[in-house]
Design a protein around this nucleic acid. Structure first.
Lengths: 247, 247
DNA sequence: CTAGTTCGTGTATGTCGTACACAAGTTAGA
DNA sequence: TCTAACTTGTGTACGACATACACGAACTAG
């Protein structure tokens, strides 16, 4: 379980099925990677990352804790497998490059929203799972018809995925903070800022809160905020593309 | 240590010095929040977040583990204090709005690079520390001279901070994965992708790697990638500002 | 049949965050 | 000045966690 003849990280090998399953003896495995990953995702979907411990996972499967380690080198590796499985298949896209990229970003956002725990997984290494690579491929393909250089296309897709991830995370934190959690009243963020933002030291912030920008946005806020950033970024890419056409 | 008469989260109260230090008896405190936070930051700076445990922190201070809890409600609260202290004072900026925002983003990036563990701190709640609020204020001020609405200015600053954080994190992960860690040879990411990206299923990705886009970038890569995204975003903001002037 | 391999399991270790109770120090009011 | 109230640092303890290790049982290739 620790040697990687191909030189690839263990989790990556498993993701691509390169794991040499040369069974040379022993009892038939009663478990399978698929079952383990599915159960792990289930635990994380309800209860978040904290609910996903090796012992709880084993219990959910009806086995002992250590049995899971026959299939997975470590919890970190398991998380990598869960991530690729959860991100799932990238969507088919059509339209011009901008419509495609927009659809790409929105679809990615939906995945994150459906499985918020993905945002809490400490990223250790680059995405090289099959599904993640398909997402990357689709993003690149959306830009194939443009005049951008190869490197610029890659950077654009990277920029978008960075944006989606960061944006969903920020909004999720914001909403979490404003949501009652243990019978406690939610933190009214506008009130906190109002209390703390002295108009002398923080004139702009104070003007913002007194202008009501931080109020009433609880529902529409996430979508609007996402759209705003996405539009700015795509506008920037558009400007780059145009400059390469005319220049 | 658990009651918050002002209704604010405990950590926020401490950040703003609202902690009613009505000492009504008891020995003089031998420790101080400042010393604790400084020691915690020191531990995290060398060794990352895993090196910052309550026991190690207490040991570094020369006290017992539990003594720290006389000054801090929980480790999470401590982390909030550390974050605000580490982000530090926002820089003075000058130039037009674009130059100011660019300087703002670059300065923020430097902070993250100097203290990479900040990226690993699970965000729980919104930034409302004094320093973080100054950063926000400075960002807003950079846009004060533009025609953007108040909400658009806020969204722009939010977009930028989201971008900087996500970008630095992504690059940090990439570099970490490509860096030898325990005498192990580093993971050659280009090689992994080359090995795994079947040209039939992943034509765009394969073209990218065979085009050498993933090679040789180890040093210049982070800066170039950051600049690319930053420029796109600012171009997008610029387009918005211009549209509001002419339209 | 047997030697080698792999399975699931039980036990154990070390680390972590933190609840709790206590003795000693300190202050405000009687 | 005495005392009641409170705070300080400390010791002990608990439960959760990831995971190393060794063992017996199951299986399969020779």
């Amino acid at each position: 379980m620790t040697d990687t003849p191909s030189g690839l990280p263990p989790a990556i090998e498993q993701l691509w099925g390169l794991r040499g399953s040369g069974r040379r003896g022993g009892p038939k495995p009663a478990l399978s990677l698929e079952r383990i990953v599915a159960a792990a995702i289930g635990l994380a979907d309800e209860g978040g990352l904290p609910a996903l411990s090796m012992s709880r996972l084993a219990e959910a499967l009806g086995f002992t804790t250590m049995s899971v380690y026959r299939y997975v080198a470590s919890k970190d590796d398991l998380l990598v497998l869960c991530l690729d499985a959860t991100i799932g298949a990238a969507p088919e896209l059509d339209g011009d490059w901008r419509e495609q990229l927009e659809g790409w970003a929105r679809a990615l956002r939906v995945r994150y929203q459906q499985h918020p725990w993905m945002l809490d997984v400490p990223i250790s290494g680059l995405p090289a799972g099959p599904n993640q690579l398909v997402w990357f491929e689709r993003g690149l393909r959306a830009l194939a018809s443009t005049t951008l250089e190869a490197g610029q296309r890659a950077s654009t897709v990277l920029l978008l995925s960075t944006y989606v991830r960061g944006q969903v995370q920020m909004v999720a934190d914001l909403v979490r903070a404003a949501t009652p959690v243990d019978g406690q009243p939610p933190v009214d963020w506008a009130a906190v800022v109002r209390r703390v933002a002295d108009p002398d030291r923080f004139p702009e912030v104070a003007a913002l809160v007194s202008g009501g920008v931080f109020d009433d946005e609880l529902d529409a806020f996430p979508d609007e905020e996402f759209d705003f950033g996405l539009r700015r970024i795509l506008d920037g890419v558009d400007a780059l593309a145009r400059s390469r056409v005319s220049g």
